[in-house]
Design a binder for these strands. Structure first.
Lengths: 245, 245
DNA sequence: CGAACGTCGATTGCATACAGTATCCCGAGA
DNA sequence: TCTCGGGATACTGTATGCAATCGACGTTCG
């Protein structure tokens, strides 16, 4: 899960951190901390899986990955286990890790769950959004449209992710946001091949959604998001060639 | 080992398993396999956290846990990381694991997410349930009522969990079921202290829910589950003493 | 007397070593 | 030719070792 910065300014009884005055007003520009290796490895492997360098079904040998990444097996193991808990790989006992093979059924289930969560998210966002939030939403929306017109496939995916992600933030429900992030990432993995043709309609629907949020119209926001995700699901089912099975 | 760092070697599963015919019809009663230590450790730690032997905020030292459980640090590390990914502990870099401290806000968010997921689950269950399924539901319901009358607190929690769990199974959506299991388990952790007074009403509502499912009345099932989870949320907020903060 | 500094112990993070087990290859027998 | 072992191989699962880092305590200086 996300390495959220622990909201623990309090350090227990030994509160030695007395306000100095000289630094109290400054922004908490903390020093850059070297990321734990397991985190780096996790990111690297996730990237390799998402961009299909590691193909579904492929056997991931710890030693090979370790050598490839220039680390020992230990961080690789830890990364693999986290990848399993998030559905990217299957860890068969005494056999090792295999890149998860997405089935149509599973993709459909994921899309279903995503629809529910995102719909709820949209409703909450509509009920809590302020003007600044809406402004930011339009910013992201414009970035997406720009990417669309520039035919920037990469940027399009990012923009889409950022927009949805920001909406989940607006809900103020961190648990919900985390879950959506998890599900969305996997959906995108399955969905990437057909993202292109869907993109145009998608951004049009985004605009409607933002308008509903701006108007604090929870019912409409909910409805639009439900349609939006449901259409995505339809697009998945109507995709040209069924690659699985 | 692979000398060249070029594309990782193909390790695809070599399907040598030809159908024998003699066993093809038998149930896959596979031999009992010794559970991986990390799994055992995970279960043990989760249990210790849930029953409050390990208190929220407590620092979990790998070496101590390892000695206590009679294993090495390695399986403990792996278990702790999984516990983090599921929200039971916080892993502060270079400091170790601390039992997560649930805040009221987080509990509320979890209850909110649970409500959404369970509501969706109820609707799906109502749309797919067969007569056998409904019969099984009544079985579980009766078990719960029996535990209630016997004042069996332990059994009550289990029965409740099993009933909800079975409903999620009925949805046929494994992804949804997994997510609900995750969320429910944590909800129960926070919620345990106030479970008792809520139990009676709860089982009455369960009965209505099962009736709706039996009648394949998706709208009603959805509504009842929404009320059910929402009342649980209310009960949480109206609990006698606020222990947090 | 208070605050800053240096040292020490404790604990994590990573690497390596060892043991158990599943898989694969190959040869013997029906 | 096909099936059934035997043995070697490769990989995972677990344990241990080592260095880096963090927190705490005691000391010294203003």
């Amino acid at each position: 899960m996300s390495q959220t910065v622990s909201p623990l300014p309090e350090r227990g009884p030994t509160g030695r951190r007395t306000a100095k005055g000289s630094l109290s007003g400054n922004s908490p520009q903390r020093v850059e901390r070297p990321a734990p290796l397991r985190q780096v490895v996790y990111d690297a492997l996730a990237e390799l899986i998402i961009n299909r360098t590691l193909e579904p079904g492929q056997h991931l040998v710890e030693a090979d990955l370790a050598e490839y990444l220039g680390v020992s097996r230990q961080p690789v193991r830890e990364a693999l286990q986290r990848l399993q808990s998030e559905g990217w790989v299957d860890l068969r006992p005494a056999q090792g890790a295999f890149v998860h093979m997405p089935t149509d059924e599973e993709a459909d289930q994921l899309l279903g769950v995503r629809a529910v969560l995102e719909t709820h998210s949209a409703r909450l966002a509509a009920s809590t959004a302020t003007e600044e939030h809406v402004a930011r939403l339009w910013e992201l929306q414009n970035a997406g449209v720009a990417a669309l017109e520039a035919d920037d496939s990469e940027g399009l995916v990012t923009a889409n992710a950022e927009l949805h992600s920001y909406i989940t933030e607006l809900t103020g429900n961190a648990v919900l946001a985390e879950l959506i992030a998890l599900v969305d990432r996997r959906v995108r993995w399955y969905y990437t091949p057909i993202a292109r043709p869907r993109a145009h309609d998608s951004w049009h629907e985004h605009a409607e959604l933002i308008e509903a949020i701006a108007a604090k119209d929870t019912a409409t926001a909910e409805k639009i998001m439900a349609q939006h995700t449901e259409r995505t699901r339809q697009a998945f089912h109507e995709r040209p060639e069924a690659t699985q099975e």
